[in-house]
Simulated assay, not measured.
Amino acid sequence: MSSACPPIRSAISTAFALLLVVCMAIGLVGCGTQDDDTGTRSPANTTDRVLFPVEQDGRWGYIDRTGQVVIEPTFERAWAFVDGRALVRESGRFGFVDSSGQVVVEPTYRDAWHFSNGLAPVQQDSLWGFIDRSGNLVVNPTFRLAPDVVEESRRSIAGGDGDLQRTAQNGRFGYRNASGDTVIAPRFDQAWYFRDGRARVKVDSLWGYIDRSGSMAIEPAFPRAWDFRNGLARVIRPSGERAYIDTTGATVWP
């Protein structure tokens, strides 16, 4: 490992300590096998300019909350902005862009992960290291651990944006409060955490969204759906069309 200032050493030590604990519990999972459909590459957008990745004609760009395209679809693949940088893929290699669409880290890495506290893990050959927001290599690639394990563990531990947690009974899902009392009866085929006041639930083979009272805020109509982030959620319609909807269910894009 190359030399690093104390805050960087602390961040790296914490990340890999968590990795070791999680790996012992659930085993390693390679980053390169993950896709946006799993949700693992799509944490909350933490930039001042909130943007959302979209696909048009096989290329990826970004829209704002109103559905306006602000970064033209030019990338082979694109993911959410985190710490002011978005992970993109071109010709099978990974790099990063800023919120203007400018490439700040050329797509030269075999794999990469989102920024956190100014650092992003990147893979060269089979080893992982860390770069800063300018693309400078801060920690030489010497690690074989995959950082998506950290993200999955964090998402699992962090849960949703409120005190309601999932509960299951006889194969059905509902929600309980911090005291352990059931507040939304287990009646869904599947359910996920609340985000932006909505939780996605599955009824039969379709996904919809409930509010915190358990009422259906957006009727189940989607074969695939993802959590709300910054007021929008990505869904796939029965036709196969990708779309973004707001918390009322109105289509924002396309």
Rank of each mutant, 00 (worst) to 15 (best):
N230L: 10
T74V: 15
L145E: 13
R176E: 14
Q123S: 02
D163V: 14
R89L: 00
D148P: 10
Q68L: 12
M216R: 05
E241G: 08
R242Y: 11
L206N: 07
R110S: 07
G249S: 03
N117Q: 14
F94T: 03
V139H: 08
F130E: 02
I245N: 03
A250H: 01
V103G: 02
I210R: 04
P238I: 00
A44K: 08
R85F: 01
D35S: 15
G180M: 01
T47C: 13
A243V: 04
P223G: 03
R9K: 15
W60V: 07
V104K: 09
T167S: 08
T108E: 13
F75K: 04
T74E: 15
R77A: 12
V29Q: 09
Y244K: 04
R9L: 13
Y193W: 13
L87G: 00
G118H: 06
V139I: 11
P7W: 02
F143M: 12
R212C: 06
I131Q: 02
P141N: 01
N230C: 15
R195Q: 15
S99L: 02
G174H: 01
W207L: 07
R234A: 09
R9T: 12
P121N: 04
D181F: 04
A146P: 06
A233T: 09
F188N: 03
I71H: 03
S10H: 10
D161T: 11
T47R: 07
N140Q: 14
S13F: 09
G208N: 06
T182L: 09
K202P: 04
F228R: 05
G67L: 07
R65W: 11
F115M: 11
V22Q: 02
G39D: 10
D98K: 09
S91W: 03
A178L: 12
V105S: 01
N136L: 09
